[in-house]
Simulated scan of single mutants.
Amino acid sequence: MSLNLVVKIHPVVLFQIVDAYERRNADSHRVIGTLLGTSDKGVVEVTNCFCVPHKEHADQVEAELNYAMDVYELNRRVNASENIVGWWATGNEVTNHSSVIHEYYARECREPVHVTLDTSLSGARMGLRGYVCAALGVPRGKQGCMFTPIEVSLTTYEPEIVGMQLCQKTMAGGGRGRQVQPVMDLAQVADAAAKLSSLLDQMVSYVEEVLGGTVEGNNAAGRQLLELVTALPALAAHSFQDSFAASVKDLLMVVTLAQLIKTQLQLNEKLTLLTSQ
């Protein structure tokens, strides 16, 4: 069992876990499920999950394993690249029944990971933790296991970043039920340009303060700035402006064509309905 595993979870997985917890039965205090994703070179990337109905008693655990396998096979038809990588549970701790559940997933995949999500919001935070199970015991003696913490972090695809930004906007009003609409493409470009300009101003101000001796330089920040500068092509100012203007024109042309095609399809649909009547 490798203790150097790193788990990277996508936001959609967290939303699915919270949704399953909100839809749980009234007598269920904990919800469990299967984690789906990929595992490569010590990095487990969790991209999907589903809930597994179960009941926990004092001395045993009852889980609908046939249901879990049916859902997994259906998911494989949609996305064959997602495999079982472990299991999740709500709560902020590992319980006595966790080892029993982990034994089942150890038969379904190699080195399964266990992720807990604290939906009780203890400490005003939704704690996210990851574990692997390390075997304990003596030769030809009674065997056991110990859940050892591992590193867990969040990772996102670009479309997920847009969704997360929309979710952050719903928090601005402070009230529930606040609705927001997706921002148009050009508005997103303008917002991104404004944020980039603000970050560049902060970077220039920091560099000037370091050169002026008012602020002590940070070696890590200096190395990151050097990597940023060397990653950019060496272009003159007018060449960069021409290239940027050409890219903006191409973007505007694509947006215009997309809007025209959308309008044409809508008109065609209305004409088809009128002729059919």
Score class of each variant (00 low, 15 high):
Asn25Cys: 01
Ser198Pro: 01
Ala258Leu: 11
Arg107His: 12
Ala80Trp: 09
Tyr157Ser: 14
Glu208Gln: 09
Thr148His: 13
Ala231Glu: 10
Gly37Asp: 00
Ala172Leu: 14
Leu5Ser: 12
Leu74Met: 09
Tyr104Met: 08
Pro139Ile: 00
Leu274Phe: 07
Thr95Gln: 12
Val189Ile: 11
Val132Asn: 05
Asn66Val: 06
Asn79Ile: 11
Met146Lys: 12
Asn48Cys: 00
Val132Cys: 09
Cys133Trp: 00
Cys167Leu: 08
Val207Pro: 00
His114Gln: 09
Thr95Pro: 03
Glu64Ser: 09
Glu22Arg: 15
Tyr206Phe: 04
Gly175Ser: 05
Ala58Gln: 07
Asp27Trp: 09
Ala245His: 04
Met253Val: 08
Glu56Gln: 07
Lys195Cys: 13
Arg110Trp: 12
His54Pro: 00
Val138Gln: 06
Cys109Leu: 04
Leu166Asn: 03
Cys109Trp: 08
Thr272Phe: 11
Gln266Ile: 08
Glu160Gln: 06
Glu82Ala: 10
Ala63Gln: 05
Asn218Ile: 01
Thr38Glu: 12
Ala237Arg: 13
Lys41Pro: 00
Glu158Tyr: 10
Glu22Met: 13
Val115Pro: 08
His29Ala: 08
Glu227Met: 15
Lys195Ser: 14
Gln179Ser: 10
Pro159Met: 05
Leu211Met: 10
Val183Met: 11
Gln264Ala: 12
Asp191Gln: 15
Ser197Leu: 14
Thr272Tyr: 08
Ala124Asn: 14
Met146Trp: 09
